[in-house]
């Protein structure tokens, strides 16, 4: 899946919409539905907020915006289960690990487990990517505030 989904499509179609993880989000099996919340000035970042537990939130970033060279190989069987084999139907996000220290905040992507969302039916799934130079690069791109 090398085609990058344009940021515009992703944002316009998913903003404030509910996405569903039919198998639950690993580690949070009770949370299957999440709202993609994003203010325009937050692009390409967004919040993924659990519908059943409003206090559970993840910060995410469009994978291709975080690392323009990022590419992802996903098994066709997995894509088929999500309802489309067309790479252009998918938005790809990294979950961010936010660390607040005394006077700075660090954001680091988790590129080994990107979240795939079929923007047409809003089915989501977290996939495992084996470590590669691409994922290492994406992980090394740290943002400090």
């Amino acid at each position: 899946m090398n085609n990058s989904t344009s940021d515009k499509i992703t944002v316009e179609t998913l903003r404030n919409k509910i996405i569903e993880f039919p198998e639950g989000l690993p580690g949070f099996p009770a949370s299957r539905a999440f709202v993609m919340a994003q203010e325009p000035e937050e692009r390409p970042f967004a919040w993924m907020q659990s519908v059943s537990d409003p206090k559970l939130t993840f910060a995410i970033v469009d994978a291709y915006a975080w690392d323009k060279d990022f590419s992802l190989e996903v098994d066709d069987a997995a894509l088929e289960e999500m309802g489309s084999l067309d790479p252009l139907d998918y938005a790809v996000y990294f979950i961010l690990h936010i660390q607040k220290q005394e006077n700075r905040t660090t954001l680091q992507a988790k590129p080994n487990a990107p979240v795939l969302v079929n923007v047409r039916n809003r089915q989501a799934r977290q996939v495992v990517v084996s470590s590669s130079s691409t994922t290492e690069k994406a992980e090394a791109l740290c943002l400090q505030l």
Binding site: L25, P26, G27, F28, K55, L56, T57, F58, A59, I95, L96, H97, I98, K110, N112, A113, Q126, V128
Partner: peptide
């Protein structure tokens, strides 16, 4: 590791 990574990244606030 995904489970651990997700738990680490989760903002429960």
């Amino acid at each position: 590791n995904i489970v651990e990574a997700n738990r680490e990244a989760a903002l429960v606030t």
